[in-house]
Each structure stands twice: as C-alpha cells, then as structure tokens.
Simulated assay, not measured.
Amino acid sequence: MFDNLREDWRTYERDPARQGLWVMVVYRFGRWRYGIRPRLLRVPFSFLYKLLKPVSEILTGIELPCEVTLGRRFRIDHFGGIIISGDVVFGDDCVIRNGVTVGLRHTGHRGSPVIGNRVDIGAGAKILGPIHIGDDVAIGANAVVITDVPSNSIAVGIPARILPRKDRNQAAPVEIAAATTQMEAVI
C-alpha cells in the first residue's frame, strides 16, 4: 500500500490539495484491508473504510470503489461527477476528467469495460458495457462509447465513432525539412 501511495503522491505532483489524491488514499486503504488476516483483525479496518468512502465521495464527487482494478499512475485530473463501477479494470497511466462514467450498460447485466494502458478519457465521457478499450486511446469529451475501441484510436461523438490516431512521428520529418529550408534561406 505504501509503495502505491508514494507513486500516487508523485503522480499528483506532491500536491495535497488535489481531490484525486484524497480519493486514491481511501481507495488504496480499502484495497489494503483485504489482505489483513484473520477476518477478525480486518473488521475495524473495514469499518473505518466504510466511514471514509462516503466522506470522500461527498467531499470530492468521485465514486471509486476499492473493487476496481487500477494500473499504476492512475490520475483523476478534475474532480466531480466521476462514477466508476466496481468491476472495471484500468491499465497503467490512465487519465480521467470530471463527469466521466465507466461501468455497466444496463442494470442487472454484468460486464464492465476493460481499459488499456495510456488511455486519456475526456470530460463527460461515458464508457459502458462489457467492452475493451485498447492501449494509447483518446476518448473525446462527452463521447458515449458502447463498442470496443482498438489501440491507437480516438473515440468521439454520440455514439462514439472510432478514428485512427495520427502518428506523431510522421509529422516530424516534414517539420525538420521545413526548418532546414528556412535555415538555408537565411544563410
């Protein structure tokens, strides 16, 4: 738990005023208590978690149950209106913003999203149902994602359209050539 908290501290730029950090502390504590054996020793920690969780939800507007599986360096950029279902799985280096919902599509139907590494989720986005979001994906603001999204894509709109992500390395040679031409013109 303490290694994860140190990494969260660095992820949130060592700023104790970030509400996302507060939620992560409660989340890490909730996960940690499951490892306490025997059950009798775990009871007071579970009681404390059940007190801390609603307090953090009221103060931050972020619902992050300890049953969610988070990768490393998970970051909540803006607080408020964030709801994450208990069986969602996030990969490493994911970022979410305010108003995001990640969870079940229909009540009573099991299955929540599995989100890959380096996924950036825009404000107000909804990711619903038993879908898979690949690595290096950007979900646009207010997008409603109800189908799988392949790696290196962008999902925008309602319902979300999947667009290929432009490779950043393709633009670099053109920019270098233009800069070289400008420098030659000066010389």
Rank of each mutant, 00 (worst) to 15 (best):
P150T: 04
I176G: 11
I176V: 07
A123H: 09
V137C: 05
D167C: 12
D167S: 15
G108P: 13
A155C: 05
T180L: 14
V156S: 04
V144Y: 02
A172I: 13
T147I: 13
N169Q: 15
K166A: 06
V145I: 05
P173K: 13
P130W: 04
G103R: 07
N152K: 09
A160P: 00
V149L: 04
A172N: 06
V156G: 11
I127Y: 09
L163N: 03
A125T: 08
I146W: 00
A138D: 10
G111H: 08
V144G: 06
R118P: 14
I146Q: 09
N142D: 09
T181L: 09
R110V: 12
L163F: 08
A177G: 04
V119K: 00
P164E: 12
L128T: 10
N152W: 01
D135F: 01
I158Y: 00
L128Q: 13
I121F: 08
V119W: 01
K126C: 05
S151F: 08
N169T: 14
S151V: 01
G134C: 14
A155Q: 00
N169L: 13
I146D: 05
P164K: 02
I139A: 06
A178Y: 10
H109G: 03
G134H: 06
S151K: 11
V149S: 00
P159H: 01
A125C: 13
A155T: 10
